[in-house]
Write a protein that binds this DNA or RNA. Structure first.
Lengths: 156, 156
DNA sequence: TTGACTTCCATAAAATCCCATGATATTCCA
DNA sequence: TGGAATATCATGGGATTTTATGGAAGTCAA
């Protein structure tokens, strides 16, 4: 499965439209509906002020994850509420753009520009400022990790 | 697995294109996508002002590392942001050239010429000047190490 | 009609394709 | 073995396509 990689900064126009980066679109396009409707699955990220997005594979992955949790457990309830409760299917228009609803824009503090960030099986939409600081921290943590068990991918 | 070896100096033309050395290309080509798209996976080298590159195996190694972490853990999100968000998948055009985006060019100080340096399972793209000084330093360190090794045997 | 939301078209910049060239390396055969 | 014929490679530049983005016209509901 081809991953979402790299990050891109795009603009929200006055009608509220943003282009989904072409690279991400081609990944999402692989599971286009029979009716030819292009869509993204989105929900507010749990521990970050960003919108989390993915295609059908992500959706089934989440299903799977929830299935594996004991039914009626608190964890399952909380997760399924958080992930599915606030989730939306956004339509990608013929020019590759989406409109991010207000609730999500507020959650992620999105105003005029947004940054799309690839995370492998999903991607996030950030306000560029918030992303910059998150990324700075993420880099540091990644370096620490590398020291701990970076050998896994450093070796050979 | 055939390793990336030796180094090559190529030019960045005014459109920003650089030829990936043919020797490296043939290694990368072994895992071409089904759709025939040739790509390189790149990210800023952590401990050096250079761009680090590899093929699909390098990418899957990272993917694997992340798969092993619990989904929806903060740890995993942070790492995948740093690793995937900070990486690039550069397309290799029909003439074997890539375009290195500005962020990377800045990180590695790339201007008109670049040096491709094989490192086994991956390779790096350096500014020729920075690479020369890095190389000189590496040599010195190697000599020192050698002296240390030597003492082991000399003493006795 | 107004306002929200589409679908459709326009455009500029950037990416990509395609072909040409000179330089090197490789092959082939008398 | 020499040396011409052939391939490969890095590089340049024009032509074409994609992409992001702007705006106009069309649709629908209140």
């Amino acid at each position: 499965m081809e991953p979402f990689v790299s990050s891109f900064q795009n603009k929200i126009d006055k009608k509220g439209r943003v282009s989904v980066p072409a690279a991400f679109r081609t990944i999402l396009d692989r599971d286009v509906q029979a009716d030819g409707v292009h869509q993204v699955f989105c929900y507010p990220a749990i521990e970050a002020p960003a919108v989390e997005c993915g295609g059908v594979p992500l959706l089934s992955k989440i299903y799977q994850l929830l299935e594996d949790l004991p039914p009626y457990s608190e964890e399952r309830d909380v997760l399924s509420t958080a992930l599915f409760g606030g989730s939306l299917q956004l339509k990608i228009d013929s020019d590759g753009r989406i409109i991010i609803p207000d609730e999500m824009r507020e959650h992620a503090n999105l105003t005029d520009y947004v940054t799309f960030v690839g995370m492998g099986d999903k991607f996030r939409i950030w306000s560029p400022e918030l992303f910059a600081s998150y990324m700075a921290e993420a880099r540091e943590k990644a370096i620490e990790h590398r020291k701990l068990f970076g050998m896994k991918y450093d070796r050979k």
